[in-house]
Each structure stands twice: as structure tokens, then as C-alpha cells.
Amino acid sequence: MSNFVFYDFETSSSNKFWGQIIQIGAVLTNDNLEELDRFDSRCRLSPGIIPEAMALIVNKTSPNMLKKSNLSHYQMIRQFVETLKRWGKATYIGFNSIEFDEEFLRCTLFQTLEYPYITSTNGNTRGDVLSLARAANLYYPNTLKNSKNEKGNDVYKLDQMAPLNGIEHGDAHSAIGDVMATVGIAKLIANKAPNVWKASMLTIDKGQSLNLIQKELLFCTNEYFYGKSRPYVQTFLCQHPQYQWPLCFDLRHDPNIYLSMPIQELTAAMKKQPKFIRTVRHNKHPVIMNPSYGDK
């Protein structure tokens, strides 16, 4: 199995188009999650970039820190890219990285005239510990300790999860501090919910993930909404005509009801709740489990 690159960014804004990466933390590990090397760097704010006050409050960055770094933004990105090239093929993984950090990275690489898809091409793959944490607690309750919000739902915020699970996170919301906390969460999942960790390694590549969904007659995957993870036993039907995502039948419903429906009636039924056709975003690191896990 290839190495892992755990990474995290602190940014001047939540907007990937107008913000800037101001700090990068990355740790190279082997497949046992043992550290092999690390990258930790901060840069100056580029001219013309206006930071969001809340972003600076969250990542504890002062205006002086934005001006006094020895590196320009371009220099920091160049050093990071060269480090990744030296580290070689790997699985890139973070905490909510697929929805945030990776999107920020792609925009940044494009803006600095670098190849933007380094995390998912040329033998590299990608994953996300946030989705694994939710799946682990669903299929193996109490794998991770979580605080609760006012609605009684588990909170999946790294700065709260790390101390509750005995992970040192004294430098919360610094890039390298968040990376080390993410590695700690990953180790807990691999040790306490090994079936979830092993299943997740089968879907870090979108082609392999799609093939798995198409090949399995029945499978279980989870969706997270309204603060809770829910398991769904499904079977593959077809791919979305535009996005190519697998469209799957939710087997909580009786398929015979829909097989005999006229087209117009079926079209209307597909727009109603609860949905009987579900979308599995195979390129977003889904966790595909045995259908027996649908009873969780």
C-alpha cells in the first residue's frame, strides 16, 4: 500500500476563489500511519488579498504575522509542490479535505501555474477522515468520543474531538497541529473500527470505487444529514448522465411497486420523499460496507 500525505491549510478566507493559503502543514506517513517526514510553512499575504476577520480569529493569525514571513505565497507553494514530488505517490487525506482543503489547493495551484490535480492523478489517490469518523461511529458506536450540540447530535469538529479522544492538540487551528490531530483520529479508526478503515481503502480511487459499486449486488453506504449518519442498503442502477455518479436503488423500498409504474407516474414518484433512488458520489471517498451493516 502507498504512503499517506496528511495535510491541512490555514487560509485568509473561506472563499477558495478570493482567499489565500497562508499556512501549510503536511505529514508523510507509511501505511501504518508512522511519520516519515513533514512540511510546515507560513507565508506573507499577497498584495490585493483582503483577509476575512473571522478567518484570522479562527486560525489565530495576527496582521503582523501576515506581513513578516520570509516567504511569499508563490515561494511557499513552490516549496510545497517540490516536497510532494519528492515524497512520490501517495494517498492525500485530511479532515474535511475533499470539500475544503483540496478545492482550495486546486484553485491555488491553477493560480500559480502548477498542475491542479496532483492529489488524484498520476497514481495519487485521496480520502477524508471526516467521512470515516462518521462511518466508524455509525457502524461501531463509541469508536470516537464526541461532544454534543444543543440538538443532542455528535459534533465532528477537530478541535473538540482531539482532546476528548486523548489526542494532543495544543496548537489547534494551526496547520501542522490540525494535521497531527487528524493522524491521531485516523489511528483510532484503524485500530477500533478496522473494517471501516479497510473498506475506505477500496474507495480512495474513484475508478475503483465505481467498479466496486457496480460489481456488488448489494452494498451498504452511509449518508450524513441533519446531524446524523444513516445507513442505506442499495443496489446499482445506472450512472448520472452528466456527473456520472452511480444512481442506486434504496432497498428499504419494494422495487416491484416501481417496476410496474407507467413512465409519467414513475417520473412523479422520483420527485417525492422519501427518495427511493440515491446518489453515491463515488469520487468523494464513500465508505462501502457489507449489506449486513444496514441494520446499524
Rank of each mutant, 00 (worst) to 15 (best):
N30G: 06
R281L: 14
F80Q: 04
A136D: 04
I167F: 03
P141S: 07
P241W: 14
K272F: 00
M161W: 02
H169R: 00
E114V: 07
F249I: 03
F100A: 02
I204W: 02
D178V: 07
S12F: 08
M76P: 09
K215I: 02
L84T: 11
L266T: 01
Y140C: 14
T108A: 11
P47N: 08
V129L: 00
M201P: 00
T29Q: 03
E114D: 13
A181V: 01
F110D: 07
N137Y: 00
A193I: 06
Y115H: 10
G166L: 08
G48L: 09
P231F: 02
L84S: 01
N283Y: 15
S131R: 11
L210R: 05
K67L: 15
T91F: 06
E114C: 09
N149L: 13
R281I: 14
V179D: 01
I24M: 10
W18Q: 13
M76E: 09
N137K: 03
I49F: 05
W245M: 13
D40C: 10
D31E: 15
H73C: 07
N283D: 15
M54W: 10
I77T: 01
M289Q: 07
F9V: 02
Q23D: 14
Q75P: 08
A268Q: 12
Q111N: 13
S12H: 04
L109A: 08
D171L: 13
W245H: 15
R86Q: 13
T125I: 06
R42I: 14
G48H: 04
N191C: 05
Q239F: 01
I185R: 02
A26Q: 06
C107K: 14
Y139M: 12
T119A: 13
V81F: 09
T279I: 13
S131G: 06
V27D: 04
